[in-house]
Design a protein around this nucleic acid. Structure first.
Lengths: 246, 246
DNA sequence: TGCTTCGTTTGGTCTGACCAAAACAGATTA
DNA sequence: TAATCTGTTTTGGTCAGACCAAACGAAGCA
């Protein structure tokens, strides 16, 4: 109870940067995670314990834990012990969720997001048309079949629709892409859900999917891109209509 | 001092969801911002004041403020009054910064991110080639000129290089795109900065820029995309080399 | 073995206090 | 009058100790 007190010594204003004590605790926990002392899924030490080992008050520990939670490094459901969370690409998008939803509120926000999606997915289908392997084709075929089988069940159609696009995002075998797709669907879902589900719309959407797939099969990037753009443009029109109605 | 106490009443376990008191304060401040009571750039009420109006302790207010800060809704430099921050697309990317940097550490992380950039920018130059307006062309031409003029000044070349790509991201007139570009450059900058700056590399990079620009000028999407891909692939090779050396 | 029970741990909140830095207002000076 | 210095007040950052309710865990019971 003599050595470790240096840490708590509050008299020195650290060189250039402002360091709140919470930042140190934050860093400390991060290092625990990086060094493997705290494995993925493991619960953090209790707040009281951390406050002891870091020689700070529990207030500070709470701040650090909250920051950890907000940054998606740990999973802190209220009432439960915080759990160390593996840093994957999905969590990155989840942490921006609240900001994004605010951005989508402002005029044109949804359109802007949707446009980037068109952009990415256009590039995606081009690439798929150029270099999709057998497995990719098979996955797309399966997704397409499931989509066709669900034409009369709007709820299932919605799911298989998403799954078809998801299959596209799998083609580059880049773990970022599925995360991006997930983010798009979750952010744009509120707009989709207000659309009426009509079987003939399902049919036309399925046809659009099929055109994309066929173009990929024929290794025709231009046609694939065009089909994709038509498809998404049509989807946007439907969303806009449901906006006008409300 | 009688009515508002209902809020503080801690006896009822709210229906389904867990609500920490901090969430209420969080929400309260968010509404203050949305309703315009707190304009952009305005300082928040003091913690003590908020704790009074919300009938909670300062502890809770601090937690809420910290959460606001972590989500990028306010700008809370330590020691200063928190400032309401306009929700723009840049802040969205900034809030993921710490998570992303951790993701980039893991094997292949940088490559995966870089690949998505190639994807987006490929789509970008295609679009530019297809529908860039006079202003876009002029902006690109200016950026290209500045780039050429800086060939012998590696530091300035680096800046104009970024500026050229930035001009590309401006073409769609989608406010998300410049933010995306900014995020890419800031995340990939650490890799770039370790590269040796050689004038002949500058020259070849400039030539690559010129090829992209010329293809756009000739409204040739395929050539533009190919030039862009070659350019970025070469850039990646350079990065890889500097990796091997270290 | 499976389930209930009851003390313990732990997160969430509150109170009240202290310090140093920032903001402010007033006096002083150029 | 404008700029500067100075002292007071406000405010954020931190601490200590306390209470509650829910989660946890182990002992006890069926």
């Amino acid at each position: 109870m003599s050595i470790e007190n240096e840490i708590a010594a509050p008299h020195l204003k650290d060189d250039g940067q402002r360091h709140r004590a919470a930042d140190n605790v934050f860093q400390h926990v991060v290092e625990l995670i990086d060094s493997g002392v705290l494995a993925e899924g493991a619960p953090l030490p209790s707040e009281r314990e951390i406050s002891e080992t870091c020689a700070v008050s529990r207030t500070v520990v709470r701040e650090a834990v909250l920051a950890l939670s907000n940054k998606g490094l740990i999973d802190a459901r209220p009432g439960y012990r915080p759990i160390v969370r593996k840093a994957n690409y999905d969590t990155a998008f989840e942490t921006v969720d609240s900001v994004v939803s605010r951005l989508l509120m402002q005029p044109g926000g949804i359109r802007n997001l949707f446009d980037t999606r068109i952009m990415i997915e256009a590039s995606l289908v081009r690439q798929a048309a150029a270099e999709a392997g057998k497995n990719d084709i098979a996955a797309l075929q399966n997704a397409l079949n499931a989509n066709e089988a669900a034409i009369d069940d709007s709820e299932r159609f919605y799911q298989t629709d998403i799954a078809f696009h998801a299959a596209l995002f799998e083609v580059p075998q880049n773990p970022l892409m599925p995360a991006i797709h997930k983010a798009y669907t979750s952010w744009l879902a509120p707009q989709w859900s207000r659309m009426p589900r009509l079987p003939d719309r399902n049919r036309s959407n399925f046809i659009a999917h099929k055109e994309i797939f066929d173009a990929i099969l024929m290794r025709d990037p231009d046609r694939a891109e065009q089909a994709l753009r038509n498809h998404l443009a049509a989807a946007w029109t439907q969303v806009e209509q449901s906006f006008d109605e409300s």
